[in-house]
């Protein structure tokens, strides 16, 4: 594989051609916030947290879906980029009900910790907070749509790793929501294998294992890159 040289925040780093910018940043210990991305799943560029500035490009680019090129000059943090990231988080908190004090995932939620890390501490926009359902029909798991940020990690893990494609996104725009099968109760799904991968990859308290009290729901995603490699058939 040919090698290219990049300049990230003034620092020279090398990368294999064909790698994504996010992979390269991670390999070099450069931190960029992400939400929709998860190693082992395809990248979709939906949450916009990983946007970086690339010299010569008119638009900000998502690190997770952008492939590197030689002599690319990247800025990962400046006042504007961090302001945009806080702004996007603010919109997520305005969209649905994320009252952490009553959430099973509090303390283990990626949304919550990103907000803390980026200093997003208040919401200036109208709270939309539509009253959404909780589907607890599955014997072991449940989904609280009020906490969902539509990152589609559950959809992708179920399709790409488990192969069941029980989940998908329905509706569109701000009325979009994740569904199982024909939007039937999860417990009645004819395709769900109850493997629980979706629960583990969900960044918030939206998908959780039943029986957890506030703050008890920890997620485990370390299995993913390994499984993804196994699925591809590489040793």
């Amino acid at each position: 594989m040919s090698v290219c040289t990049l300049f990230v925040d003034g620092r020279e780093v090398s990368a294999g051609a064909g790698e994504t910018l996010l992979e390269v940043l991670r390999e070099n210990g450069i931190d960029v916030p992400t939400l929709c991305n998860l190693e082992g799943l395809s990248a979709v560029g939906a949450c916009r947290m990983c946007l970086v500035a690339v010299k010569g490009q008119g638009r900000l680019m998502p690190a997770c879906t952008t492939r590197v090129w030689d002599h690319m000059e990247v800025t990962t943090h400046d006042e504007r980029l961090d302001r945009y990231r806080r702004g996007v988080l603010e919109l997520l908190f305005a969209e649905r009900n994320h009252v952490c004090s009553v959430c099973v995932a509090s303390g283990h939620c990626e949304l919550q910790s990103l907000a803390a890390q980026l200093g997003m501490d208040h919401v200036r926009f109208d709270y939309l907070h539509p009253p959404l359902a909780v589907d607890a029909s599955h014997p072991r798991f449940a989904i609280d749509h009020n906490r969902c940020i539509l990152c589609t990690r559950c959809v992708r893990v179920c399709d790409e790793i488990e192969g069941a494609h029980t989940w998908d996104v329905a509706g569109r725009g701000v009325k979009a929501w994740v569904v199982t099968d024909l939007a039937e109760p999860w417990g009645e799904s004819s395709t769900c294998t109850s493997c629980g991968k979706c629960v583990q990859v969900c960044p918030t308290g939206s998908l959780f294992v039943k029986g957890h009290a506030v703050g008890e729901m920890e997620k485990r995603t370390a299995f993913l890159p390994y499984l993804a490699r196994r699925r591809k058939g590489t040793p």
Partner: peptide, 8 residues
């Protein structure tokens, strides 16, 4: 509805 800034 895919990306946050436009959706919300």
């Amino acid at each position: 509805g895919k990306c946050v800034p436009c959706r919300v």
